[in-house]
């Protein structure tokens, strides 16, 4: 214990190390991967993101009767690996730094569907 006391005394005078999170929000790092942003205008519904998603968080649903195609994104399954953002040929997906908040129910996000 005596060897530790030097540290303890130093810590006593060096001010708090704690990040006061909910009160002061730290600026996220520019490379942080926290949220998948989707731009439906650029999307061509090619389905590459749905095929390569390792967590099956993205799927493309096709409604042949009503000629609708829509992209379904489940943010609860997303592992933020940014594989889809890397491989999207249209550049309609990218990772954003702002994190998701907590939620009390699971929901999936449907994209604006496209007429085929």
């Amino acid at each position: 214990m005596p060897l530790m006391s030097g540290n303890l005394i130093k810590n006593l005078f060096s001010g708090p190390a704690t990040r006061p999170y909910p009160i002061v929000k730290r600026e996220p790092f520019p490379r942080a991967r926290a949220r998948l942003a989707y731009d439906p205008d650029k999307c061509t519904y090619c389905g590459i993101c749905a095929n390569i998603c390792p967590a099956a968080a993205i799927s493309v649903e096709e409604d042949r009767e009503n000629l609708h195609i829509s992209r379904v994104y489940n943010s609860f399954a997303c592992i933020s690996c940014a594989r889809c953002a890397e491989l999207c040929p249209q550049g309609s997906l990218r990772m954003e730094v702002s994190p998701h908040g907590a939620a009390d129910a699971k929901t999936v996000a449907y994209s604006a569907s496209k007429e085929t």
Binding site: F29, R33, C81, A82, R83
Partner: peptide, 10 residues
């Protein structure tokens, strides 16, 4: 800072 995630770097 360098990879974008804290524990799982991908």
């Amino acid at each position: 800072m360098t990879t974008g995630q804290r524990v799982i770097q991908s």
